[in-house]
Design a protein around this nucleic acid. Structure first.
Length: 838
RNA sequence: GCGGGAGUGGCGGAAUUGGCAAACGCAGUAGCCUUAGGAGCUACCGGUCGAAAGACCUUAGGGGUUCGAGUCCCUUCUCCCGCACCA
């Protein structure tokens, strides 16, 4: 008798599952569905235990739901486009497809080795034309609806490579990754955008639908990213400059009487004109270029923005406050962002921390215009948002608005501004449109052509997919790789048949992952991205599991895509993902596993050494799933030992138990030992069921099972006082509870216990109510908060009866003798506290 | 700065609704078994005092509510994550 052999056990059962097609599913309206999904991996490098943790959690959920009778869809696929493939291809002089497909083959092999319950028939790979043609199809639908458009936009440009760099290729705060001494430049080129801002309101409002199902912090991150601000644009006329005015955006128009300056971003479009006629022009131009320079440098190191000094200069121009006709100076400063709002603000130092700092530094006046309703009035010497202005404030120094609350003032001032046509109410968002153009080869070609006659022309649906040319010249230098492939570029105009050039940019890979989970429902469809009836059955995704790193972009784009598809009439729902779970990272040495750090624990070597089940068990046991997990080679031994212990336990008992039928214990004839064991088993089952269903505390579920196994072992030799059918029931329960977590060894144990049919044919066991709870419990009796003894009471015993019993107990009675009972607190199953006088 | 989360033994972590803190495991100590063990088994394993029984202390610090607080409230500190001069 010795260790079990995980390699052979695991291979054996994986083969059986495959032969029996256990994990293949079809839409079946007669059965309740459950769609559980883990974020699809980018197939690069090796699968490490971080991946495995993600998939193990998903697999446990899938297996539990299956045992519970759900029709479970649990698919897997590959996020196969991306820059690393292109880099690897250049480096190894191979094709990105070769590199990618090799990795996929490797990933498949390792995933299969872990026995994850995927329906492999549904596997997709986003780099296949069968998939990416639908990216193109969706793009064309968006183009038709004005949701895709082209505009000039900034890219990172390395002058040495003469190529566009992705953000991750810009290192050390602004240098090229291949030329570490070369500063990356900004260039403006035409790029394609998807109009995510058209859905800004819905993306924000529908977050409500996700409450309860998504982690609070992910919802918050999304909300902040969308960044809705309710405010107003207000025009300030520029003095001595007929016709020109400066537009500012403010959420606090009620403080406009406190504005003591207008501040523009350095590259505000009106800046050159303003300076043109201003006094001391040469000096101001110098100041402007110094400021721009500074901004350029500061944007590279974003960490210490908080402490960054506010710098600016007076433009020499003044503006007029449209409310009180006051003349105020126009400044430029580094803390006003050109891209947000109007690129200009009114500076209200008394009621804004930034404005306050700025004005103190440059000696601009501070005027308080909102005072607390009660208590000490505030003064211009200290910054002032010390009270809740909206709740407890009233306006002062604000002409006819004096005495109003900020809310009312905002309302009236906006109306006034609109009436006089110098301002308007406006809601703005921080969210930007999604730039999808990438100057890369290994991505989805954007399906448009440029005709000399007819300009931008969409490729016709019938001509999809626009295929990537099979043999690109990849150098990592020069223009986009597709531009260097004439047979790809040169084409004809769909409208006139004349010469035309294809778009040579490819799509951001986030496009691929924005809708892939729909494709799983109908992965081989060549008429449409998917059949809507199939999607209607499976969607929404009941449980999505992945890393927090994708909390913003991937999920936001997916939500956007869903709404677009809904508006195209393909689906009915507005949110694709009902529940989201973000698991913690697997770390080693306190940092995430990564190739560059050299701390990767490969899944493969893990499976070699201990087997997949041990790896699965350990990742579930070592920490609750939402927390980061520090990998420990020492600790994993414990999981290995435990599985061996269970194996030997069943092995020892298999012979006796095989022929008998479990679970028919006659309560009356059960021995004490049997009762104790059964009770423990069913109590464990009750708690484990709860842990699986509601709390996902797999670590404590495992601890419970370990405790049960310890108890069974300490009751050994089981031969004495425990009949085979009782023994069998207990061992079966252990096996069933382990089944979702360590499925291979569980199948093996199940077979050893005499079951010919696979464990997959068995449902989740129901605990026996009468056994799962204690019929008699020990209650601790306290007198005046001090433990005075213990009494056994039947469940359901009332308070008074209990005191009688307690008094009957010699120890307790002694403490109660002759004293008046002031108060009794009875905590069922736990404790009785008696408070006595004196 | 704003938002979110967390602080429990040497370590990972348990502790339904407030009810015997430290379950389960790792590491460690002692012993048994073994030709051997990196296998298995038994016992111990938060701190102080004690030979022991036991007593007292202990969930980042301080205060509060309660018969009773790791858990609830106030407060201070520390750490992690996200956003970051968003007007």
């Amino acid at each position: 008798m010795g260790d079990y052999n995980p390699q052979s056990v695991e291979a054996k059962w994986q083969k059986r599952w495959e032969e029996a097609r256990v994990f293949e599913t079809e839409a079946d309206p007669a059965k309740p569905k459950y769609y559980v999904l883990e974020m699809l991996p980018y197939p690069s490098g090796t699968l490490h235990m971080g991946h495995m943790r993600n998939y193990t959690i998903g697999d446990v959920v899938a297996r539990v739901k299956r045992m519970r009778g759900f029709n479970v869809m649990h698919p897997m696929g590959w996020d196969a486009f991306g820059l690393p493939a292109e880099n690897a291809a250049i480096q190894n002089n191979t094709h990105p497809r070769t590199w990618t497909n090799n990795n996929i083959t490797e990933f498949q092999r390792v995933l299969r080795r872990f026995g994850f319950s995927y329906d492999w028939r549904r596997e997709i790979s986003t780099c296949e034309p069968e998939y990416y043609r639908w990216n193109q199809w969706f793009f064309l639908r968006m183009l038709e609806r004005g949701l895709a458009y082209r505009k000039k936009s900034r890219v990172n440009w390395c002058p040495k490579c003469a190529t566009v760099l992705a953000n991750e290729q810009v290192i050390n705060g602004g240098y090229c990754w291949r030329h570490e001494d070369t500063l990356v430049e900004a260039r403006e080129i035409d790029q394609w955008f998807l109009k995510t801002t058209a859905y800004a309101d819905q993306l924000l409002d529908d977050l409500k639908l996700l409450e309860g199902g998504w982690p609070e912090r992910v919802i918050t991150m999304q909300r902040n990213w969308i960044g809705k601000s309710q405010g107003a644009f207000v025009n300030f006329e520029v003095l001595n400059y007929l016709g020109a005015s400066i537009e500012v955006f403010t959420t606090r128009i009620d403080t406009i009487y406190g504005a003591t300056a207008i501040i523009l971003a350095a590259n505000h479009p009106l800046m050159p004109q303003l300076l043109a006629g201003a006094p001391d022009q040469p000096q101001r131009l110098q100041e402007l270029s110094a400021l721009k320079d500074r901004i350029k440098r500061q944007s590279t190191k974003a960490e210490d923005l908080a402490t960054m000094e506010k710098v600016g200069f007076y433009t020499g121009r003044d503006a007029v406050n449209p409310f009180n006709s006051e003349r105020i100076p126009i400044w430029a400063a580094n803390f006003v962002l050109a891209e947000y709002g109007a690129g200009a603000v009114m500076c209200v130092p008394a009621h804004d921390q930034r404005d306050f700092e700025f004005c103190r530094k440059y000696g601009l006046p501070v005027r308080v215009v909102v005072q607390p309703l009660e208590g000490e009035p505030i003064d211009s010497e200290r910054m002032t948002v010390a009270f809740d202005e909206h709740q407890h404030g009233k306006l002062v120094n604000s002409g006819s608005y004096d005495g109003l609350s900020p809310e009312v003032a905002i309302e009236r001032m906006v109306s006034f501004a609109e009436e006089r046509k110098f301002g308007k109410s406006k809601t703005i968002f921080r969210l930007r449109d999604w730039g999808i153009s990438r100057q890369r080869y290994w991505g989805t070609p954007i399906p448009v052509v440029y005709c000399q006659e007819h300009g931008v022309q969409a490729v016709a649906d019938k001509d999809l997919p626009v295929l990537l040319p099979p043999n690109p010249k990849l150098t990592g230098e020069g223009e986009s790789p597709l531009a260097a492939t004439p047979e790809f570029v040169n084409t004809s105009c769909p409208k006139c048949g004349g010469p035309a050039r294809r778009e040579t940019d490819t799509m951001d890979t986030f496009v691929d992952s924005s809708w892939y989970f729909y494709r799983y429902c109908d992965p081989r469809n060549d008429k449409a991205p998917y059949d809507s009836t199939k999607v209607a059955y499976w969607f929404p995704i009941d449980q999505y599991i992945g890393g927090i790193t994708h909390a913003i972009l991937h999920l936001l784009y997916s939500r956007f895509w869903c709404k677009v598809m809904r508006d195209l009439g393909l689906i009915q729902h507005s949110e694709p993902i009902q529940r989201l779970f973000t698991q913690g990272m697997v770390q080693k040495g306190g940092v995430a596993m990564s190739k560059s750090r050299g701390n990767v624990v490969g899944a493969e070597e893990m499976a070699q050494k201990y087997g997949a089940d041990t790896g699965r068990l350990y990742t579930l046991f070592a920490a609750p799933p939402e927390k980061d997990l520090e990998w420990s080679e020492e600790s994993i031994e414990g999981s290995w030992r435990f599985l061996n212990r269970v194996f030997r336990l069943v092995e020892r008992n298999a012979e006796r138990v095989r022929g008998v039928k479990s679970g028919n214990m006659d309560g009356a004839s059960a021995t004490e030992k049997e009762k104790k064991l059964l009770r423990k088993a069913h109590q464990t089952l009750r708690r484990v069921t709860q842990d699986f269903e509601t709390r996902w505390h797999f670590n404590s579920a495992i601890a419970q099972v370990m405790e049960l196994v310890n108890e069974i072992q300490s009751a050994e030799p089981l031969g004495e006082g425990v009949r085979p059918e009782v023994r069998k029931e207990v061992l079966e329960l252990v096996t069933l509870m382990l089944a979702p977590m360590t499925p291979h060894i569980a199948e093996e144990l199940w077979e050893m216990l005499g079951h010919a049919d696979g464990l997959w044919t068995v449902g989740w066991p129901a605990f026996k109510e009468e056994l799962a709870r204690d019929e008699e419990v020990e209650v601790v009796v306290q007198v005046n908060g001090r433990v005075r003894g213990k009494v056994k009471v039947a469940v359901g015993t009332g308070e008074d009866e209990l005191v009688t019993q307690a008094q009957a107990d010699a120890g307790v009675a002694g403490h109660l003798a002759g004293k008046r009972v002031v108060r009794k607190i009875f905590v069922p199953n736990k404790l009785l506290n008696i408070v006595v006088a004196g």
